[in-house]
Amino acid sequence: MIHLSGVNKYFGDNHVLKDINLHVNAGEKVVIIGPSGSGKSTMIRCINQLEKPDSGEVVVDGINLTKSKGQLKKIRQEAAMVFQQFNLYPHKTVLENLTIAPILVQGKKRTEAEKTGLEFLERVGLKDKAYAYPTQLSGGQQQRVAIARALNMHPKIMLFDEPTSALDPEMIKEVLDVMVDLAHSGITMVCVTHEMGFAREVADHVIFMADGQILETGTPKAFFENPQNERTQQFLSKIL
């Protein structure tokens, strides 16, 4: 479903992604962890081309994005992203946040987009907030709306870029609950997160990144209980 091969990315002189190879099959849940500045976010943002790699190939759902740029719009509808800062549209109501892209980008009818939008709001437990504005919601509620907004594109892949890092501790759980529920639905998920409990519970693979490289990949059990790489061991000893 997602294939990154030999991906390199520079910000000026800073080599932030070093020869990254990542393969995610359909339906797999992959959790990426690692220290700040290790390139986790940059890597996940290469999947929907919010960052353009300087070299290497990105293939999503059979489409080589480094070659056929015309297909980018299609892939961005299939790979929906949830951001650390929510990035809801503050001038739109919650329901409009969910429907604007399906209507404008996918050409759906308003009634249809609103119907599915309300269903997804119900799924994240916020149907009663459909006509509120984002600023009237708590951080946790905003992030759940952001997840519903992503789902209303009916994506094949969900990309989470540190979805709970900007939240107060008591709001993290409500967002993680939604994400766990989503993971059980069979969708392909790639999550950059610091939530180790979430990684243990839902991940098929856990990936450890540091200094722009993937240093270790494993099942949650192997990864947390028997890490091979020294950097992984150091990192886990600090946070667990």
Binding site: N48, L50, K73, K74, R76, Q77, A80, M81, F83, Q85, N87, L88, Y89, A101, L104, V105, Q106, R149, M153
Partner: peptide
């Protein structure tokens, strides 16, 4: 982030 959210949705 507003532009990023929009283009990530295919705008």
């Amino acid at each position: 982030g507003q532009v990023e959210a929009a283009v990530s949705q295919g705008f």
